[in-house]
Design a protein around this nucleic acid. Structure first.
Lengths: 130, 130, 130, 130
DNA sequence: GTGGTCTAGACCACA
DNA sequence: GTGGTCTAGACCACG
């Protein structure tokens, strides 16, 4: 799977990596049990430091998206991504709040907002019918 | 309007301030032309540094939410909040992407996601019928 | 509070630090809200690297023992240490298992084992009567 | 005796093996003089590397739990497991310290802790009355 | 001055 | 060859 880092924006590299791997899981480009490159390989591929990749992997492990075997490397969690529990919903709501507040302030209609959501959902679930 | 700063979360204080003022505009607690406390007063009220308030005000001005007059102080932009132009939509999409990716990965249905959106919209538009 | 690192044993430094801070909380040497040295100061005091201290602090934060403010530094969690929930009990049991297995194999009586537990409990709760 | 390796947790495989054999001795599933599979067989059964089994056996021999004869293979030490001498007690205390510290910090009562100990003791001494 | 991020390079345990 | 740990030193955001 192709990972792309944008060095211009101020989003931390390890954060971009975390998001892209989760996006890969969402798009089913990365399947349960599938292997990810070793920290060193991934770092070399992206032209970044090993530790930066490691930080991303650690976070993904802590959040239940991947497993890290000391020897066998890193794999997408075989039992699939963690489910959307109450805890996650609460965090998600907190993240949505400021986005929606600004949309309301700018007079973006709920319909238009939901169109956006629809578009992005489609982007991730494009393989649904396969 | 009551501002509340949470010093325990890691979101920067100036960021919390920006978001709360935009939320105030969305909820129509802050109306076009309404005066905001001076940098000095706001800082005192919240027990934070003047520079922090200033940073928040600068950002709100740059984004078109407020006007800063040397004499008349700080006011909510009289012509209302900026509209949701293409540029804003693009930024919004970028912010939504990682949130939706994780939701899809975690198998949260679009319906459930939209319920969340509905809830938050209601929270900001509660005064609609008044 | 005095922290002591043993460079001879193979227990990672950051791990020793985590344990000593938890021990400090148990002994009430570190009270809720109390400040810990900055990563740099702690590192200098112990003659170790900043990042090692940071790794310990991160873990303590993730486990709910401390709060990290970007500017105000690090404090023992004001609401006290997290409680012993089911999750913790499960982990504790898993950690006790091999210890008890070996004790049983070596014919250490349960009474003797409990004497040990008693001793150590006393060590941590010595201030109870104050 | 059934050995089970968990490849997903981060405890080294050889360590899991050591602990399971000691647990087997504690439960009297493995009796003094009883033969253990050869390094080669054990490795094959578990689908792990010979070196890993060897490392586990070496440690068990060094700690007095098994004997390794060139001819007769590997046997549980005929004179039974080593006793709980001062040296062992000291090590045990060191291992218990951090566990108890966290329990105290988390406000787990000594009674509750001892209930846990009781449960685990029972688990290993279940055959006592047979 | 505080923690957050990133880099570079090293040694070790595990398998 | 894999991740884990540690060091050294740098720049940045925040307040």
């Amino acid at each position: 799977m192709l990972m792309e880092i944008n060095f211009e924006i101020d989003k931390p590299i390890y954060r971009q990596l975390v998001e892209q791997i989760i996006a890969g899981i969402a798009r089913k480009d990365l399947l349960p049990g599938e292997r990810l490159p070793s920290v060193r390989n991934m770092a070399e591929d992206l032209g970044i430091n090993m530790h930066t990749v490691n930080k991303a992997y650690q976070e993904l492990r802590d959040r239940g998206f991947i497993l890290i075997h000391r020897q066998r490397g890193v794999v997408i969690h075989p039992s699939g991504a963690p489910k959307a529990d109450e805890n996650y919903i609460a965090i998600l709501k907190e993240q949505l709040h400021p986005l929606l507040a600004e949309s309301v302030a700018r007079n973006l209609s709920k319909t238009d907002f939901e169109k956006l959501v629809q578009q992005i959902y489609d982007h991730y679930e494009q393989k649904e019918g396969e």
